[in-house]
């Protein structure tokens, strides 16, 4: 369970990233956070694994305040929260298997990882993860030889190999075309259901949010302005969240890539 209790974040340059956020995310939920760029979606998601650190309030993950965490606890926290990025963040020169095994870093000692001494179990776990996103035939390809959609699937496999309790996906489909976007979202949803991994996804496409989310959280200017089940959401809700009327490019079905 993740609980934001009156969390605020002010960046060193004075930008207000989050403003008095109060949100509770229950185990097993598939939550989509929507909002325009700059609304604080990324900041919210990155607070959970402490890639950024809120300046006020308390943020509980499994009943522990993670804002007090320092290096060792922080590694433990990050080991149980997997992350998926807009730009896949793979090591382009390394092969797919090595990239996927990076998901085991938090579980592996420094020396073992330096000499690539991953256990047999880890290696078969990595291969199984690649199979689950149907990209096992690329196991020895270099990451930069793959298409965007394939790279994002590799990064999902990396997260699966990590065996996290939570998955944070920061705009996972923003760099992909519509069919590939739906494929990636389908994998995320499937993993959420099959493995019961709590999943939080940032999106700015409203049609995708409505299609995949159990629950939608709307953000504007660092504040949570909507929080409710996806079934209650209409186009009107989005207009309120975005503070303007809905346009063609707010939809993934549109031609924008």
């Amino acid at each position: 369970m993740i609980e934001f209790k009156d969390v605020s974040l002010v960046y060193p340059n004075g930008t207000q990233g989050l403003k008095n956020v109060n949100v509770t995310i229950n185990d097993g939920e598939f939550v989509v956070i929507v909002g325009l760029s700059g609304a604080g979606k990324s900041t919210l998601i990155r607070s959970i694994n402490r890639l950024v650190t809120p300046t006020n309030g308390s943020l509980l993950v499994d009943d522990e305040d993670i804002l007090k965490y320092r290096s060792k606890n922080l590694r433990k926290l990050r080991t149980k929260t997997g992350m998926i990025f807009q730009n896949y963040n793979l090591v382009k020169r390394s092969n797919v298997l090595k990239n996927v095994l990076a998901g085991r870093l938090g579980h592996t000692g420094t020396l073992r990882s330096i000499f690539n001494m991953y256990s047999k179990k880890d290696k078969s776990l990595a291969y199984e993860s690649l199979k689950r996103v149907n990209i096992e035939e690329k196991v020895y390809n270099r990451a930069d030889e793959l298409s965007g959609g394939q790279q994002q699937r590799v990064s999902i496999a990396r997260v699966l190999t990590q065996q996290p309790k939570y998955i944070l996906a920061d705009e996972p489909v923003a760099s992909l075309d519509p069919p590939t976007s739906h494929q990636v979202m389908t994998y995320l949803k499937k993993i959420n259901k099959e493995d019961n991994i709590t999943t939080i996804v940032n999106l700015h496409f409203i049609d995708m949010a409505m299609e995949y989310a159990d629950r939608i959280i709307g953000m504007r200017a660092g504040e949570v302005v909507f929080d409710g089940p996806a079934s209650e959401v209409t186009e009107k809700t989005f207009e309120e969240i975005y503070g303007r009327s809905i346009r063609e490019d707010d939809l993934r079905g549109g031609t924008e890539s």
Partner: peptide, 18 residues
Amino acid sequence: PLEAMRASGGGTIQVIWT
């Protein structure tokens, strides 16, 4: 990629190495 390694729980040396 370094950000991803950090996010998956890697220590400083692991992040640099991988």
